[in-house]
Design a binder for these strands. Sequence first.
RNA 1: GCCCCCAUCGUCUAGAGGCCUAGGACGCCACCCUUUCAAGGUGGAGAUCAGGGGUUCGAAUCCCCUUGGGGGCACCA
Length: 508
Amino acid sequence: MTEPLEPGLSTGQPRVRIAPSPTGPLHIGTARTALFNFLFARHVGGTFLLRLEDTDVARSSLAYEKDILDGLHWLGLSWDEGPGVAGEEARGPHAPYRQMERLPLYAEAADRLRAADMAYPCFCTADELDAERKRLEAARLPPRYSGRCARLTEAERAALTAQGRWAALRFRVGEGVVTFDDMVRGRVEIDVANLGGDFVIVRGDGTPLYHFTVVVDDAAMRITHVIRGEDHLSNTPKHILLFRALGKEVPRFAHLPLILNPDRTKMSKRKSQTAIGDYIAEGFIREGLVNYLALLGWSTGTEEEVLGLGELCARFELEAVHKGGAVFDRERLEWLNGQWIRKLAPAELAERVRPFLEAERIAGRIDRMPSDDEILTLIPLVQERLPVLGAIGDLVGFLFVDRLAVGASLLIPKRWDAATTRAGLTAAREVIAAAGSVAFEADELEPPLRALAEARGWKAGDLFMAIRVAVTGRTATPPLFDTLVALGSERTLVRLDAAVAQLPEDRP
RNA sequence: GCCCCCAUCGUCUAGAGGCCUAGGACGCCACCCUUUCAAGGUGGAGAUCAGGGGUUCGAAUCCCCUUGGGGGCACCA
């Protein structure tokens, strides 16, 4: 018995990967797949690596690459091996981790398949293939490559090449049934006859195609578990055939249920918000997003559902992943996000909310950026009122506006008329001014204002509502007295005066 | 068209033959708390477990069929 040069896949440490294609911003589905790979790796003590599949040069861009890498980092899904970014060295023994930098590997593998006649050059043009596909479609037949170039002799090939025709490389799928045991779906059997004929692995221009590069790289990087979306289930036989043809051990597969649009089709940009960046921009926080994504297609089996990344790593089981697709439910995401916002330490929340206030200022919705201390004092008022961080402007933006625009009709509480409102605000102004001369604190404000309401026979709630609208411009705000304190005595009085001045004349 | 996969409240799900007159969560509706809004608490509506056949003393759970849904079938990934 000779020692194998490398340990068998089955005996080594588990190795998984996320292999995004930089042809668009980080997609919710990619993030979820990355998360499940990450959770699996952390749970079993394996290695999680990132590989960029950028062979579609026309659609790939560095901007998308950055968006994807930044997004995964933001989510906290750090990889153990991955490409070099921003001048930094790649991490891991299988570099490079960017497919366009691994071209020689694919060329070598392609040559081997070609030499063994497991793949052959195909001279069909795009137009010819197109016409063929259309003909089959018209005849209500499944699309499939005819195999026209499969039996060309070397002499014929040479002649075609001499004509200047470029050849793509096609892999011979042969015959038989491919069987594999998917870790979430169980046994899957697919007849090779249904694969659509011999498929292209290298384009006419020499660049390799996805089905080929994944396999070459998964083998080279010694991936033990391929965890990916269900949309790849039907492609798996092609990959298995390729692993075998290259003489490589076939990894285990686990196909995750798809994330769905409300109409239960595969989640798409057209019907849903799919870019992680858009969720970040709205103020979803990583804890909420990660927690929500983990629960799309998996559960602990218990009734616990508010779980942090650490807990998720500890409890995740691939075997417990569902088979059916899951509709993306924004309401539930918001609820979970709110749960996590409430769990944040005040200083932490203050820090996370700051960029959103800056955005308000840049958008011109507020006139002044509050100091860090100011933000911190606001946290108790907003922490349990934020479904997303981006809601901060709506909640307390009025504090940082120079001139408040208040709708005149809003100024008068439901049970009050203009005269009562005028009387109420005028009286309240005096009480507040008096309190302000001592100490402008919530505890100093509330008792005298309640007393005022009682003395005049007003419902405290009506008086408070009149003040609230006069001073904030809205009917829904954080607790009134805290709000007045945050505003400060002087500005409170100015706003009360402005409101009284704006009140419509009393009807005779 | 062909192949593959899937199927429990509107949504996310618990459920691995008797614990299920199907549990939890989101959302929804009440009520409580309350100066508004939230948060929190309590309660409620909401699923004949897609339908039909089996197997079994017993099925949401096992098998088959039907139906419905989804995915894949590119010189995209």
